[in-house]
Amino acid sequence: MSGAVLPGQGAWRRLLRNAGFALGALIVGIVLVVAILAPWITPYDPFAVNLEARLVPPSFMEGGTAANFLGTDQLGRDYLSRLIYGARISMIIGIATVITSGLIGTTIGILGGFYGGRVDDVVMFLITARLSIPVVLVALAVAGLLGSSFLLVILVLGLLLWDRFAVVARSTTMQLRTLDYVSAAWCAGSSQMSVLMREILPNIATHLAVVATLEMALAILLEAALSFLGLGVPAPLPSWGLMIAEAKEYMFFTPWVILVPGIALFVLVLGVNLLGDALRDMLGTDLSR
């Protein structure tokens, strides 16, 4: 992790000219708008079962109808409507997880980087211990024990995915701690809290934003995997992972049933990662680990 902590001059201008950033922002923006407007733009009720129109192919494929643009699932529910509501689930999980894990990780990391010594030893230990815990396995075990629910997924992922926030907050705080303007704030008589909140935090924020995109992408993928294994978001909620799980039985006959939610998932995660990559390029640091 080399390079300066603070973004150089003209960094924001460079960011806006970055094609990857534009594409990422477009994808995430569209998904966000679709998720917010879901009740108003879905053609059908995503839970409405129609056993007479099961597994209808998308309208652009052979046998498709104009009534269901992306076809219907094994219970005759409109695939497009479910996909749109699924965007809501992915976005809520992604954002809520990032907020939870970001608060935990940033606090731990700043404390370690700022105070050093014993405090930092404890912080490093917490990070090492957290990294040794297999996330998917523990998340599944907890869901199996307590019964899976939407809230539980957010909580478990939020409590598990803070490690990278802590690592980055710690190392960037360490670099800042010795800089002149922080010393100046000390000399001017600022309290510890004020130095942390007003000098350190704003200056590591962009680095944390890069981590936030990485963690959001990871949280979205993990939620899908958990739901796919039947211990994430419970049915009949239209999580994209759950949609793939429900369609799995039919994929050998009608492959589009797993393609539709899978591509949606892939594109959203790609968009979030593109944003993160562009931010990272702007900072000129490598946080990809």
Binding site: A224, A225, L259, F266, L270, N273
Partner: peptide, 18 residues
């Protein structure tokens, strides 16, 4: 690298199976 990062592993598995 970006594509690899965004690929849901279980989904890729299903695609390869088909």
């Amino acid at each position: 690298a970006l594509v690899g990062q965004a690929m849901p592993s279980f989904w890729l598995g299903l695609i390869l199976m088909v």
